[in-house]
Amino acid sequence: MSKRTLKMNRLITILILGLVCFNVDFGLAQVGINTTTPLSTLDINGNLSVKNVTLTGSSSATLISDGVYISVAPQATDQEFRLPSPVSFPGRIYIIRNIQNSITAKLTTTVGLLFPKGSTTGSTEIFMYEGSKRSIIAISDGLNWTYFD
């Protein structure tokens, strides 16, 4: 088992034990990591690592289903990378970056639309390329995806 897996398992165990101990009596308990006075439901005083995944494009749409920081590597222009249904994963957040310098990646979703922040006009696809939307953050609202570039 890798060091990263061991650390993640230890963190999950600590979180579960903390949630069980605090939620038995209080219901709205706060859990702190490296702090004795948490100010949020989960308060981390330190660094946070998230799962990093690289997806290489294929002849069909490549589904984004794992990880938080997603590096997409299209092999052909406008190769499609598809977010999961926002209905199935409300509140889910992805950080997506096209790591190719000269190839455009097309981002779509299985259900709903993609809305730029602050807009009421959504689209079925966005294009990620050098100089425009190279990196985005996508957040599910339970019906659609809102993205920030």
Rank of each mutant, 00 (worst) to 15 (best):
G46K: 05
D66N: 15
N98K: 11
P74L: 09
I93A: 06
V72E: 07
I14H: 04
I99C: 10
I96L: 11
V87Q: 11
P86F: 08
L17E: 14
F115W: 09
F148C: 01
I44E: 05
K106A: 15
A138E: 03
N52A: 13
L83E: 04
T35K: 00
Q30K: 14
I96Y: 10
L6F: 01
G67F: 05
G67H: 07
T62Q: 12
V20D: 03
K133Y: 11
D149Q: 06
G46F: 09
I95M: 07
I95K: 05
A76E: 15
I95F: 12
T124D: 12
W145T: 00
T104E: 06
T13E: 13
P86N: 08
Y94P: 07
I137D: 00
K3Q: 11
A61S: 13
E130W: 11
V20M: 09
S40A: 15
L15I: 15
I93T: 13
G57Q: 05
E125K: 08
F22T: 01
S132C: 01
C21E: 15
L83C: 06
I16V: 11
E80N: 03
F81M: 02
G27H: 04
L39T: 15
L48N: 04
A76M: 05
P86V: 08
G18C: 07
S135T: 14
S140N: 05
V87P: 03
V53H: 04
I64A: 02
F26T: 12
G112L: 10
L39K: 08
S140P: 01
Y94R: 01
S58V: 13
F81I: 04
Q30D: 13
T109K: 00
I70L: 12
I12L: 15
V53K: 05
M1P: 00
V20I: 12
R92N: 03
T124F: 02
P90A: 07
L55D: 10
N98F: 12
N9V: 03
T5Y: 01
I33A: 10
I95P: 00
I70Y: 02
I126A: 12
S60Y: 05
S132Q: 07
F148Q: 06
S102C: 08
V111L: 01
P38I: 13
S135A: 12
F89A: 02
G57I: 03
F22K: 04
L107I: 15
L28I: 08
I103H: 03
I139Y: 04
L83N: 07
S59D: 12
N9Y: 03
G142P: 08
D66Q: 14
T121C: 02
L114P: 03
S123F: 06
G27A: 15
T36Y: 08
N9C: 09
N34W: 10
N52L: 07
T36R: 09
L6Y: 03
S88A: 15
S40Y: 15
I14V: 14
L17K: 14
P90I: 06
E130H: 09
I139T: 01
T62P: 09
